[in-house]
Write a protein that binds this DNA or RNA. Structure first.
Lengths: 338, 338
DNA sequence: TTGAAAGCGCTAACAT
DNA sequence: ATGTTAGCGCTTTCAA
């Protein structure tokens, strides 16, 4: 069986109190005793029992992340990267990461409630915020520590990291307009997601600035999957007057749109321009390579995680609300209008 | 503060033991008492403290999953899907899932050791087994419960689910040969991964069966990323005598290979055939759509998780070693040799 | 500088 | 059918 401090105490002939304090480097323990205890612990292969420590300290040193998965075949590269960022940061700061996979909805909220209620985690990370986010509303009223990737439409007075989606789409639209495009279509994202509105706002205001507009037939809502992008693009290309450029609200949908265009024999980047958002690693190796907006997903994951852990620890936060400026990555999927 | 069983006991005027047993539905408690206790618990919003239960029961009801991430920009759709399968199954069976992200190597092994030593989890899930897998060797000798996705090269006497990779590549190669291809190149995977050998074996034996062979210049090792596939394909296409078909060991590399071919103006499916492995959701929406081998990744995730939890619970396993037959999905990235 | 004792919230063997 | 008691492994007053 695993040795406990009791075993160490017996071995070195001291009380368990002394052992505990020696191990935790209290300064009312003599150096000799510390030496002795540590040596014994080492020899016996002692490792503290995390559960016992947690019960006593009433903290878990664990953060929770509930991934909003859409269906079983959920496979979004965006989330892998974000998860890696959060995970690495957590481990560097001495925290574990509890992950659950839930489709948005009732079960999801149940998970939040239960995570909070059972004290399984010290705080939660929220991904892909919704305008009117029940998760955030709940955590706020519960007074439970959390940090989010994204804002909400109302009061965003909580720790978050977000990208400036409005600026991102401004970059995209300006790029397309400079290339001479006038018939620009948008494959947007579900309306309940906050970022959809930011990006939409950036797109609209930029279009307007140039005296143009986006007709309703050029405004389609995608589901952020490749299939969704494909289907929306089909519809756009079926129009009597199809667009010369399609701006998708994420890379995955842009890939789907590229497939749809290519299936009709259109040369992407020449006969039609297509853009994405996120700059997932695949964007660089698609054919043609994808013009998109760069979001440092991995870094955002780290940052959100750090924000959360500092909140948990009650450490001062120099910056609680972070908004990052994305940058435009011009590649081969866009070109001058035909 | 949160109510404890002590609070309930005080309120209903019973001992905490009685409360505990009433809550756990012991049959030596009268129905009236149970009613009473449950009602009180309900009213007070009582929720058991998981940490305390764990300390007492010496189990965590948590499984661990250490994702082998290769670099920060880790974004493999394969793992998202697997993770979702594991996560959903775990939650259905009442388990939490602790996820860590580690590049294979020392730190990774440290994580395994510490997970085992600190009793943070009741069992571990191993993904993407290596031929000579130190994780498995360690867990075996430690007598710690685990289940794997994949086998090892030596003694695979542990619970696992794996796909029949040899059969998968047999399907692929036969498909290509039927299409008239004779110059078939392989973009394989790192040699330390077990599945690489299975797939390689299937490819070689099938090729030989048809009296053909794969020259060393047609045998490249990829790193399972899109970029890796792209680079390998570049090399293949630069050969004086380039292959007419390329079989990649996963879909991501196949996409990279497609890009490389298309960049040279080759029409994939006509002038060159390219195949993948996994059938990730994107395969269906690439351009052209990807001929590949179907692996039920989500289901495998669920299955491995179930295997692990049953092992933890000491439940009898009707099938400890599961090997699934993959199926061929023919799409547009392959066609008759030009 | 050290130890005794209490307690974190819960379960379970053993009485009654 | 219910209560007493001990204990899971640890931290932390408080006293010596």
């Amino acid at each position: 069986m695993k040795p406990t401090i009791k075993d160490i105490a017996r071995k070195v002939g001291k009380s368990i109190t002394t052992v505990s304090r020696a191990l935790n480097d209290y300064d009312d323990i003599s150096d000799e005793t510390k030496q002795l205890v540590r040596q014994a612990a080492q020899e016996m292969g002692y490792i503290p029992n995390a559960t016992a420590q947690r019960l006593q300290k009433r903290t878990t040193d664990t953060i929770g992340l509930i991934l909003p998965t859409f269906g079983p075949r959920f496979s979004d590269p965006f989330f892998s990267e974000f998860l890696t960022g959060v995970g690495n940061q957590a481990s560097e700061m001495g925290f574990d990461m509890l992950v659950a996979t839930r489709a948005p909805g009732n079960q999801e909220m149940q998970s939040y409630r239960s995570d909070v209620a059972t004290n399984r985690v010290d705080g939660l990370i929220i991904v892909r915020t919704r305008c009117d986010d029940p998760r955030i509303a709940f955590l706020k009223q519960a007074g439970f520590p959390f940090a989010a990737f994204g804002r909400v439409s109302g009061d965003s007075n909580f720790p978050y990291v977000d990208e400036d989606g409005s600026f991102g789409l401004t970059l995209i639209i300006e790029h397309l307009i400079e290339l001479g495009h006038r018939r620009i279509a948008l494959i947007t994202a579900p309306e309940d997601l906050t970022f959809t509105h930011h990006r939409l706002e950036g797109a609209h205001s930029t279009i307007q600035k140039y005296g143009l507009e986006i007709g309703p037939e050029y405004l389609l809502v995608g589901d952020l999957t490749q299939r969704g992008g494909y289907e929306c693009a089909q519809n756009l290309l079926n129009l009597a007057q199809p667009p010369t450029a399609i701006a998708a609200f994420n890379d995955l949908m842009a890939f789907g749109a590229m497939s749809a265009a290519q299936e009709r024999g259109l040369s992407v980047g020449k006969q039609i321009s297509i853009t994405g958002f996120d700059n997932i690693p695949m964007a660089e190796h698609a054919h043609p390579t994808l013009t998109t907006v760069q979001q440092p997903i991995y870094q955002i994951g780290r940052r959100v995680c750090e924000l959360l852990i500092r909140t948990i620890r009650n450490e001062p936060l120099d910056e609680t609300q972070v908004i990052l400026k994305p940058t435009l990555i011009v590649r081969r999927s866009t070109g001058p209008v035909a």
